[in-house]
């Protein structure tokens, strides 16, 4: 376990998450992709904190902020899903195309 291996694992998680966020049609699956990206980001932040930050507390703070971002993303995402489902009886991103009319 070194900074390089930790960052490679984080990079893999970000890569898979990016694939999911770009390719999924369902809102909730798309959100899972975003969560996986943030998962990698948190791991990278903790890795840097542990290996090259002399243990400064701001490194941990960044991870806490990312967790808050995740919670906000989840809550807003589900509210959007509920709103779109009410309007369109659908949960797919394509359903949003005509939403502005």
């Amino acid at each position: 376990m070194s900074i390089i291996t930790v960052q490679i694992v984080a990079a893999a998680l970000i890569g898979i998450g990016l694939y999911g966020a770009l390719s999924q049609q369902s809102f909730v699956m798309l959100m899972m992709g975003l969560e996986l990206i943030l998962n990698g980001v948190m791991l990278a932040a903790v890795g840097f904190w542990a290996y090259s930050g002399t243990g400064i507390p701001e490194g941990q703070l960044l991870t806490i902020v990312v967790m808050a971002v995740m919670a906000i993303e989840m809550a807003l995402g589900f509210a959007l899903v509920v709103a779109v489902y009410r309007g369109k009886q659908a949960d797919m991103t394509e359903a949003l195309e005509g939403f502005k009319h």
């Binding site: 770009l22 999924q24 049609q25």
Partner: peptide, 12 residues
């Protein structure tokens, strides 16, 4: 249920 599958995989 995917769209732009190849592009997304490439981006990842």
């Amino acid at each position: 249920m995917v769209h732009q599958d190849k592009f997304a995989a490439l981006a990842g």
